[in-house]
């Protein structure tokens, strides 16, 4: 929450983001974070050892693959949807696929569904 407010307050000068530059895998260089900014470097950059680092891969349009520290400290992969609007990077949970059903019958002891094509 606080982070969103902060970035909106720091309204950047109209920036066009070079999406070809953005389209790569980035690793969180948390040692370089400052003033509410999270700093990422291209994956492969030599960084000091760390308890764990976040990796976000933006090389595929709309689908983000990432790595985050797992429960036992080894990295685990995750997936998100991403879009870019002006200079705002939006990251969302991957939308669940929708199924549609018509409720054909509903009683205290029965629910009957007919699957609709989407």
């Amino acid at each position: 929450m606080e982070r969103d407010d902060l970035s909106e307050a720091n309204e950047a000068v109209t920036t066009t983001i070079d999406t070809t530059l953005l389209a790569r895998a980035w690793v969180h260089a948390h040692e370089e974070d400052h003033d509410g900014m999270q700093v990422f470097r291209p994956l492969g950059t030599q960084l000091p050892p760390s308890r764990g680092r976040r990796v976000i891969d933006l090389s595929t349009p709309e689908v983000m693959t990432g790595l985050a520290p797992g429960a036992d400290d080894r990295p685990e992969s995750f997936h998100r949807a991403w879009t870019i609007e002006n200079d705002v990077l939006r990251i969302r949970a991957v939308a669940a696929s929708e199924q549609r059903f018509r409720i054909s019958r509903l009683a205290s002891d029965e629910l009957a569904l007919i699957r609709l094509s989407s």
Binding site: L47, P49, S50, R51, G52, R53, P69, D72, D73, R74, P75
Partner: peptide, 8 residues
């Protein structure tokens, strides 16, 4: 892998 350790 750049990490400091892991556990089971």
């Amino acid at each position: 892998g750049g990490i400091l350790g892991y556990a089971q």
